[in-house]
């Protein structure tokens, strides 16, 4: 009797939390598809607002996709060898380096952006280019890539595998290419999906670094929330959800898969 009462209470709390998270999300999807939100759904469903968003903000969507791909490439180039290096040299120096590059996870993006602006703000060409925003995105996503690969590499017996290959005459580069990369694949995949998802959604750093000519999707969102009618803002949010939700689910799937290996 008591047990079922407690369970009922737990269920109510769980369902209320779900409702709190889900209802406004559904409302935003509906508002983006309703002809007139104030009159309600009876005013009819329309794709008018979605098309208007496309006309107004297509550039920002493409910039975000481009930045996400560039960010993925850079984090792979820097992160994959670095994760290998950290895995082969576990020591206090490696721990310190890993801890240091993880700072952007803990320190608010606003502070990171202010620091970048003060050091590089006067370099006009760099400041005004998309590369400046890319630096911010790489800073924020790199620790996810490094840790994701490192977790997988730490779980396999890298040393024995490499010694075996070395005794057969494989060079360090061959061992990296033929042993480390294939073994790290689940970590690379999970890291890559995390990097792309986070880059597309990044706002805190990007808002400070962006210029009027370089607006990413979340910057455009903030823009539309402040200046557009509710239907347009909602339709834009809907476009964002369509982009981010599948990525997020793929990311959770890949992370769970990589985690099974590390256990």
């Amino acid at each position: 009797m008591f047990k079922s009462k407690t369970k009922l209470l737990q269920l109510i709390v769980t369902l209320s939390a779900c409702a709190f998270l889900l209802i406004p999300t559904i409302m935003s999807v509906m508002a983006g598809l309703t002809a007139n939100y104030f009159k309600g759904i009876s005013s009819g469903l329309t794709l008018k607002w979605v098309f208007q968003v496309w006309e107004l903000y297509a550039d920002s969507i493409f910039l975000s996709l481009w930045l996400a791909i560039a960010c993925l490439i850079v984090t792979l180039i820097i992160g994959l060898p670095a994760a290998y290096g950290l895995a082969r040299h576990p020591g206090w120096l490696s721990r310190l380096l890993e801890e240091f590059i993880s700072l952007p996870l803990a320190v608010p993006g606003l502070a990171i952006a202010l620091a970048l602006l003060q050091l590089y703000g006067s370099m006009k060409g760099f400041r005004a280019s998309w590369a400046f925003i890319l630096v911010g995105h790489v800073l924020y996503t790199l620790p996810f890539m490094v840790r994701s690969i490192l977790a997988v590499l730490a779980a396999i017996d890298l040393k024995t595998l490499e010694e075996g290959a070395a005794s057969l005459g494989a060079s360090p580069w061959q061992r990296f290419r033929d042993i480390v990369v294939p073994n790290a694949m689940p970590g690379i995949l999970a890291g890559a999906l995390t990097v792309v998802t986070l880059s597309i959604g990044e706002f805190n750093i990007t808002w400070m670094l962006h210029t009027p000519y370089l607006k990413t999707l979340p910057v455009g969102l903030a823009d539309s929330y402040a200046s557009m009618r509710l239907e347009v803002a909602s339709a834009y949010t809907l476009v964002f959800f369509i982009l981010i939700v599948p990525l997020l689910m793929a990311m959770q799937w890949a992370s769970a898969r990589a985690q099974r290996i590390t256990k």
Binding site: A82, I101, W173
Partner: peptide, 22 residues
């Protein structure tokens, strides 16, 4: 040397865009 070379890009990037700005 190979392992050190692997860590170099990370080191340079975080020095230029994290340590110095902070």
């Amino acid at each position: 040397t190979f392992v050190l070379a692997c860590l170099t890009p990370l080191f340079i990037f975080s020095l230029a865009f994290l340590a110095l700005p902070l």
